[in-house]
Simulated scan of single mutants.
Amino acid sequence: MQTIADRLLYTQNLIAQATKNAHRPANSVKLLAVSKTKPVSDLELAYAAGQRLFGENYVQEGVEKIKKMQSLRDIEWHFIGPLQSNKTRLVAEHFDWMQSVDRAKIAQRLNDQRPVNLPPLQVCIQINIDDEASKSGVAVAEIDTLAAHIATLPNLCLRGIMAIPRADADKEAQKNALAAMQSIFTDLKARYSTIDTLSIGMSNDMTLAIENGSTMVRIGTAIFGARK
């Protein structure tokens, strides 16, 4: 049976090969290990194998892991799930990144609740690129307004955009969604000097995402195994 270290190395090699095939610079794509529902012991094994970026979808679970692993100070914690306004304080106080900002109210609360002793919270705007009713994310037409608002908030730093394209889409539909994200990213990057992150790509579309400019892929099961 493969260990977490084995699966992590395998995933890193897939990313490196996809990056090379896309004629992009080595190490231009970061790996975010999605650790939701997994025990701290699994995260510690990934950490021992060199992983430093971890993504959590559930606020309380993420905060508990951050507290248990607070001695490992070089971990970068990303919140990547939908966020209710009554839980913004926990994210503002404990996470380094918030990738799923999808409305001005959430951005404002995160800004107001970010502790003064911490650096600005790094944020991405989540885009509902396929306009799915079941998914969080801002509509494409509303991106500019939300980006402009975030840029005015001193305790947030706008780093980029993220999306979760349809998992059941065919290759052509996936490619179209990812290409649309790359186009939006390029446009925003030209207007905001802090933007450097295009967070797209999971297990089912990682290679395509890297072909379309992803700078961060979010991988869970391939590293930690199936969730119970």
Rank of each mutant, 00 (worst) to 15 (best):
residue 1 M to I: 10
residue 2 Q to I: 12
residue 2 Q to S: 14
residue 3 T to H: 14
residue 4 I to V: 04
residue 7 R to M: 09
residue 11 T to G: 04
residue 13 N to I: 07
residue 13 N to Y: 11
residue 13 N to M: 12
residue 14 L to Y: 12
residue 15 I to V: 01
residue 17 Q to E: 15
residue 17 Q to I: 07
residue 20 K to N: 14
residue 47 Y to F: 14
residue 48 A to I: 10
residue 49 A to H: 01
residue 52 R to L: 00
residue 53 L to I: 14
residue 58 Y to C: 05
residue 60 Q to I: 09
residue 72 L to P: 10
residue 72 L to K: 13
residue 73 R to G: 13
residue 81 G to V: 09
residue 82 P to D: 08
residue 83 L to C: 08
residue 87 K to T: 09
residue 89 R to W: 12
residue 89 R to H: 15
residue 91 V to Q: 15
residue 92 A to V: 10
residue 99 Q to C: 11
residue 100 S to Y: 06
residue 101 V to M: 07
residue 102 D to R: 11
residue 105 K to I: 10
residue 106 I to Q: 02
residue 108 Q to H: 13
residue 110 L to H: 11
residue 115 P to K: 00
residue 116 V to K: 11
residue 118 L to D: 09
residue 121 L to F: 02
residue 124 C to G: 08
residue 126 Q to A: 09
residue 133 A to M: 09
residue 136 S to E: 11
residue 136 S to T: 09
residue 144 D to Y: 03
residue 144 D to V: 06
residue 147 A to T: 05
residue 148 A to E: 15
residue 150 I to G: 09
residue 154 P to R: 14
residue 154 P to W: 07
residue 158 L to M: 04
residue 160 G to T: 00
residue 161 I to E: 00
residue 164 I to E: 13
residue 166 R to L: 06
residue 168 D to K: 12
residue 169 A to V: 03
residue 171 K to F: 00
residue 171 K to H: 10
residue 172 E to G: 13
residue 182 Q to T: 07
residue 184 I to G: 01
residue 192 Y to A: 04
residue 206 M to L: 07
residue 206 M to D: 04
residue 208 L to F: 07
residue 214 S to R: 04
residue 220 G to H: 02
residue 225 G to P: 12
